[in-house]
Design a protein around this nucleic acid. Structure first.
Length: 675
DNA sequence: GAGCACTGC
């Protein structure tokens, strides 16, 4: 049985929303935006988590694993590492680690904690994310890092011996790397009883995580004799600092959530006091459509809606447009942000008082039979609905309008989402575990077991790449090398193959570009211009060679942002490409790859691409409608993705087949090669 | 004719 800690008369603030409409109770009613002087120590003491300082330290002392259930604003992330430091957990050269799923969060939390402790970031308090190691091995005692980086650290030090306490934050999000990390940490605990884990989670996942750490193979008696910490996890609940959020449901199911969101926003605008609105929809298409509908409504004369500022938000949006979200709302205006799930966890908007929740989000699903990943609009979970509602209560009491019925919420909505581990292609996860010496992947103690078919598929792909052998062990050197490159195994294999083919420079460039979301800018309504821009760089060989052309153009322009703008290239993405490229070159050199360019010989580039991606090979089906291909391996029907330059070319050439030569086609269309 | 959100020595 897990221990539930209830210190004093403090009651947990989270009520089950099954019982009423109210999600959070506020305990601290004062505003957190401290005007006037307040010492940092005073500010710290006002955080809800402060009251639990003694309880937390007691639990960490006596339990191998402590689970902290804390809502937003409890201060757990910034305070608990400091409590541990003050209590001596960093003495004797030991280090306290705190992991986050996202890089931005790591940086933000680390600098906040350094400021609170009055130390220079990178000394006593530091952080590590990809490309940035702001730590001093001799001085850093409190270290923030992404879970991905901690996993990488395990390759050098499998028992993570320098850490005394590891706090895994946001574990309820159940990302791929958090799940793997938790499984491995549980394993480490067996060898290192002195290691303490703190896992922070939202309510719903806490019980599952506790059960995971609570079940072990029979050594329970020994712990008492040896004065070991209790192996059963402790759970402590810390209230957040949100305000009440009143939940409204629709009486009848809505036929069209897009239309319903728009009319709900107008209703709020007409009837509710000032305060910004956040609407959760599923993707760019939905969002752009809603923005347009609302803008039209706002301009229609019958409403006094001139005060409405409607803004879209999704990760693919150019940075300049994303930044508009953070500009303060002018007086007598109301901001409406129409967003994807990015506003659910990754970005926090201040000033939101009303949330409109469509009840849907786009989710990735993996089909191991077809080996295809799909994005599907699917109903969200209760956990997600609760998180969305909480976004309305950050500055003052708010309201959340759910575009589904209460009955649906209570009786049909699932409690939590499917963990990413069960909806993903597993090649990367499997190779990571293999690299850490976990050979029996099927027998690994998973927090959520992946589908057996998915594991088999991953092992098949890795075997065919020559990364694992007949005994499913990493091959030497290829397997170990592929595991060392922080990319998907197929891309890593492509890099290794480029060595013999003499085109490592080109392949590394392509790999860096493949690791950013997209180098193209897509602005609403400018699809034709984007396609035209793509044609300036288009290569008949396909997207990979096209990317090389873009990269060359970018270098020739002197890495100019204006050049990017003219050519519909995402400047920030290109900067990331340059950074990734440098990192990949460093790693390649270490692996003994000779950095060499093949100049204009694209034949070898294509060979290298094929060496990594041969499993995706397919043939055009003769006489098929719409250009259907079938994969060589399993005759799975596939199509060229609409974003591919090949499709742009095909559509344009259907009218003018006589232009086999790309240069002539550009000439015909009046497109300059470089612009 | 379409891209939820993340991560990595």
């Amino acid at each position: 049985m897990s221990l539930f800690w209830k210190p004093g008369s403090e009651r947990p603030c989270i009520l089950d929303d099954e019982e009423g409409g109210i999600l959070f109770f506020a305990t601290a009613s004062s505003s957190s935006s401290g005007y006037g002087y307040k010492s940092i120590e005073k500010q710290r003491q006002r955080l809800p988590v402060y009251k639990y300082r003694t309880a937390i330290l007691y639990l960490v002392e006596t339990h191998a694993t402590t689970i902290i259930v804390g809502e937003t604003g409890s201060g757990k992330t910034t305070q608990i590492p400091q409590f541990l430091k003050e209590a001596g957990w960093a003495d004797g050269g030991r280090v306290i680690a705190c992991t986050q799923p996202r890089r931005l969060a790591v940086q933000a939390v680390a600098s906040r904690v350094a400021e609170e402790m009055g130390v220079k970031l990178g000394e006593e308090v530091g952080y590590t994310i990809r490309f940035e190691d702001v730590t001093n091995p001799d001085a850093t005692r409190v270290k923030f890092l992404t879970d991905g980086v901690l996993l990488r650290e395990m390759m050098d030090d499998p028992l993570l011996t320098k850490y005394s306490v590891i706090m895994v934050d946001e574990a309820h999000e159940r990302s791929l790397s958090t799940d793997i990390l938790l499984g491995l940490l549980k394993k480490i605990q067996r060898c290192r009883p002195e290691l303490r884990l703190i896992i922070s989670s939202a309510t719903i996942e806490a019980k599952k995580i506790s059960a995971f750490f609570g079940t072990r193979k029979r050594h329970q008696k020994k712990e008492i004799e040896e004065q070991r910490p209790k192996l059963d996890p402790a759970i402590l609940s810390v209230e957040g600092r949100g305000y009440n959020v009143e939940i409204h449901y629709v009486r009848e199911p809505v036929p069209d959530y897009l239309q319903a969101s728009v009319s709900t926003v107008m209703l709020i605008h007409d009837q509710e006091p000032m305060g910004d609105i956040l609407v959760f929809l599923t993707g760019q298409d939905d969002i752009d459509a809603a923005v347009q509908l609302l803008t039209e409504e706002a301009q229609s004369h019958r409403r006094n809606s001139s005060g409405l500022i409607v803004l879209p938000l999704y990760s693919g949006l150019p940075r300049s447009e994303q930044d508009l979200i953070f500009s303060p709302t002018p007086r007598n205006k109301r901001k409406v942000v129409i967003s994807t799930n990015i506003a659910e966890t990754s970005l926090t908007l201040e000033g939101i008082v009303y949330v409109v929740d469509s009840g849907f989000s786009k989710q990735r699903f993996y089909n191991p039979i077809s080996d295809l990943e799909n994005l599907i609009v699917a109903p969200i979970s209760k956990a997600s609905a609760r998180q969305r509602a909480g976004r309305a209560g950050r500055v003052r009491p708010g309201k959340c309008y759910r575009l589904y019925t209460e009955d649906y919420f209570l009786n049909e909505m699932s409690n939590e989402g499917v963990p990413e581990m069960q909806r993903s292609n597993l090649v990367s996860s499997v190779i990571q575990l293999k690299a850490l010496g976990i050979d029996n992947i099927l027998g690994f103690d998973w927090l959520a077991s992946p589908l057996p078919e998915a594991m088999i598929r991953a092992l098949e792909v890795l075997y065919s790449l020559g990364v694992i052998d007949d005994d499913a062990k990493l091959t030497s050197p290829v397997g170990f090398q592929v595991a060392e490159i922080p990319l998907e195994p197929m891309i890593s294999k492509m890099i290794l193959s480029s060595n013999q083919l003499g085109c490592s420079e080109e392949i590394i460039t392509i790999s860096a570009i493949l690791s950013v979301q997209s180098i193209w800018v897509s602005v609403r309504g400018s699809q034709k211009d984007l396609d035209e821009a793509k044609l300036r760089f288009a290569a008949a060989e396909g997207d990979h060679v096209t990317y090389l052309n873009v990269y060359k153009g970018f270098l020739q322009s002197g890495k100019s942002s204006q050049w990017c703008h003219r050519n519909f290239i995402n400047y920030h993405a290109m900067k990331k490409v340059m950074e990734t490229r440098e990192q990949l070159r460093r790693i390649s050199l270490r692996l003994g790859i000779v950095l060499k360019s093949c100049d204009r010989d694209m034949e070898v580039v294509r060979k290298a691409v094929t060496a990594g991606f041969f499993a995706n090979a397919c043939r055009l089906e003769p006489y098929s409608e719409g250009g259907m291909y079938k994969t060589v391996r399993s005759s799975q029907a596939v199509y060229i993705h609409p974003s591919s330059v090949l499709l742009v070319l095909r559509n344009l050439t259907s009218d003018c087949i006589q232009f086999i030569n790309l240069e002539s086609l550009r000439e015909y269309l009046g497109i300059d090669r470089t612009s």
